[in-house]
């Protein structure tokens, strides 16, 4: 196989490439933060006039909470802030499809490129 000679890349275009990556990185990390998509999906199950008993804490736990400086009122938002795991099948299927599609593309495209690398490195003859 003929040796592939890559084109020389212009200095300005190199900056464009790096700029694109930085944009993509900030997009991936900062956008979810901005849109409020990042972080845990939790919600508070409110209890009116909480006491340690209503919050389900035994004597040992209460002594520790108090040592940490909490009262039933301030601990309420911590203790009652819960996950509600209900599996949304549509999102799950979507997520699985995105993940699997991503890996399939990765391995497929990598293999195509890899064959070229091996052909150039070791010559075409088997």
């Amino acid at each position: 196989m003929a040796k592939y000679t890559p084109p020389e890349q212009d200095k300005a275009l190199q900056f464009v490439d790096v700029g694109f990556l930085i944009l993509a990185i900030f997009g991936a990390l900062w956008l979810p933060l901005q849109l409020g998509l990042a972080g845990a999906a939790k919600a508070i199950d409110k209890i009116e006039n909480p006491t340690w008993e209503l919050l389900g804490q035994n004597a040992t736990m209460v002594s520790i909470w108090e040592k940490l400086g909490y009262t039933p009122a301030t601990a309420h938002d911590i203790i009652q802030n819960r996950f509600h795991y209900n599996i949304d099948w549509l999102t799950l299927v979507l997520m699985a499809a995105v993940l699997i599609g991503y890996y399939v593309f990765l391995f497929w495209a990598s293999d195509k490129e890899y064959r070229e690398v091996i052909a150039e490195k070791f010559g075409d003859g088997k």
Binding site: L31, A38, A40, D88, L94, M95, Y102
Partner: peptide
């Protein structure tokens, strides 16, 4: 992955979409 989906699903999808975009760009 399933564990991340429980509670942090949208973040996972955003992240994978990022990798898909840069992969297409690279390839």
């Amino acid at each position: 992955f399933f564990a991340i989906f429980l509670g942090y699903g949208s973040q996972l999808i955003a992240m994978v979409i990022f990798y898909v975009i840069v992969s297409i760009w690279f390839h």
